[in-house]
Amino acid sequence: MTTPVLEVRNLVKAFPVGGGIFERLRFAKGHLLAPQKILRAVNGVSLSIAPGEVMALVGESGCGKSTVAKTIARIYEPTSGEIRIDGEDVSHLAFKQMRPVRRKLQMIFQDPYASLDPRQRVKDIVIEPRRAQAEKGLSRKALEAEAVALLARVGLNAEQANRYPHQFSGGQRQRIGIARALSVRPKLIIADEPVSALDVSIQAQILNLMMDLRDEFGLSYLFVSHDLSVVHHIADRIGVMYLGFMVETATRDQLFNQPKHPYTRALLSAAPTVDRALRKPEIEIAGEVPSALRLPQGCCFRTRCPLAFDRCAAERPALLEQPDGSSVACHLHNQAA
């Protein structure tokens, strides 16, 4: 049994929100109170990624998938729970102690326009993580040569290394972001909606590049996306999130052939497709996602679920393993088990 590259257990992230003290001031039972509003973005998510594996997180906006990604990269401080990278618990490491860990873990961001420093040359952007990690005495020349080699690997030439980010298109910028992530030869890359801002023809180029790099460098990906067809293309295993909960995890084929959770089924049938023959009878779900400030009692999906019954309001379903190896958090499936 190899150590998973990433193991997350019961990750919780809550954000205190809601304005200044005067906005929150209440008078109750003879006391003046200022209760803190809490936005529960991630509520006990667990996952693990094996070396070379691509795990995708899907869900609609506000489901907490990006928060999971950013908390693992320790851009956010986890409220509670455990994050193990290559076996090492990093959930309580201080900023400086995180530095050696970042050699194993890098991130690619959604917005190729906001994630590159406009005042830095591309070669400097690409080599910055490497420079932060490099042993002393590595010459500037050697680092620059590495930058050019990295850029060549993602399809940009040496002449372009001296340019600034604004001289590149969205797809090229995303290539620069990928080269930057690769510079420290990480084991795991967390990609937060890396192709959502790109046109389809460019999206295909970037997805192909990411798959090639996985094979070449033995990378693992945590791939966050809202787009099911992209996820189907790239992922080995998929986790479906709703309102900060993991509602289903399964291998790609299981998830697309036999989705179990009603929300997964609804997501799959709602996605438009060019293959007319493939269109399924739609499972219609009404309404919209409830607010993460006031989570519903019981199952998080019951307010929109066409199959909800009384137990769903009373009791929150746990994510339980099914006979086929997938896991589902739904009373309909856990009754039988």
């Binding site: 023809s201 295909a204 067809s229 189907h232 790239i234 697309f256 060019v274 293959d275």
Partner: peptide
């Protein structure tokens, strides 16, 4: 354009 779309089939 059509080929660039990842297909589920």
């Amino acid at each position: 354009l059509l080929d660039s779309i990842p297909r589920i089939t």
